[in-house]
């Protein structure tokens, strides 16, 4: 793999993370605890979708084979999606959704901030714009996590359980491979060790304010970036790609 190919793969992965999380969030578009939360959820989903479109379009340009955003979203089998497992986890209840978002957004924001200073101008520019959106998502998510953790006995128990259940998907965020190494070396991309240290302290601070306990070190799941996903993921992709698969090659 050369640097250009690594950059391509890296940008597709950014698109995959954003699209899969958007896809999960829009499943619960009319299922919030308050109307304001439904509005926020729709707004965030729209941001992630917009990001996926920018990343996929740019990936298509890097590749230079004429693939467009929809080719990446609708015309790849699930084994070719390389999002992290965390974003594909089923929604569960509101607390699960918030914990999933916070754990991912802390990582994503650090990643985008690092990418904003990378040597690929287009990626730096997209990352700078995207970081502004994620900073707001994270503020919203962490405020909710604090309220739920430090709310009632029931809410505290529920989000502690969400945190314990989702924790095993956080190791993969920092489990770099050749793609990450080439983007780091060739484009001054994110250094995952530094990201992990920053992520750990940022998450610990939110968890502490939420009066929750950080889960003990435990076994970490992996495989998303090799296209090895959870069983639920096949349904997410089948649902999303339904029309393009049933009626290939049409304009909509």
């Amino acid at each position: 793999m050369n640097n250009e190919q690594a950059l391509f793969k890296y940008v597709v992965r950014l698109g995959d993370n954003a699209l899969v999380l958007a896809q999960r969030l829009i499943e619960i578009v009319a299922d919030g605890p308050e109307l304001e939360e439904e509005l926020a959820n729709a707004n965030f989903s729209l941001d992630y979708l917009g990001q996926a479109r920018m990343f996929y379009s740019y990936a298509g340009e890097i590749e230079g084979e004429g693939r467009k955003e929809d080719d990446f979203a609708f015309r790849r089998p699930d084994r070719e999606f390389e999002n992290v497992l965390l974003v594909e986890q089923p929604n569960g209840h509101f607390g699960d959704v918030i914990v999933r978002s916070v754990l991912f957004d802390v990582f994503y924001l650090l990643q985008l901030e690092a990418l904003s200073a990378c040597s690929d101008d287009r990626l730096a520019e997209i990352s700078l714009k995207t970081a502004k959106e994620i900073r707001y998502h994270l503020r919203y998510g962490s405020q909710w996590l604090i309220r739920l953790g430090d709310g009632t006995e029931e809410s505290h128990g529920r989000v502690q359980d969400s945190l314990d259940q989702l924790w095993r998907f956080t190791g993969e965020l920092f489990d770099g491979d050749e793609t990450d190494e080439l983007v780091l070396a060739g484009f001054a991309g994110p250094d995952l060790d530094k990201l992990q240290a920053a992520w750990t302290s940022a998450v610990a601070a939110i968890v502490e304010e939420a009066t929750l306990a950080l889960p003990e070190d435990q076994w970490m799941a992996g495989g998303g970036r090799d296209g090895l996903h959870s069983e639920d993921f096949g349904y997410l992709i089948a649902d999303m790609q339904h029309l393009q698969r049933a009626y290939p090659g049409l304009n909509w």
Binding site: P33, E34, F94, R147, T152, E154, S155
Partner: peptide
């Protein structure tokens, strides 16, 4: 399903 969330926000 959101009752526990609203109660938590209120309690907080």
């Amino acid at each position: 399903g959101g009752a526990w969330v609203r109660e938590a926000a209120q309690a907080y």
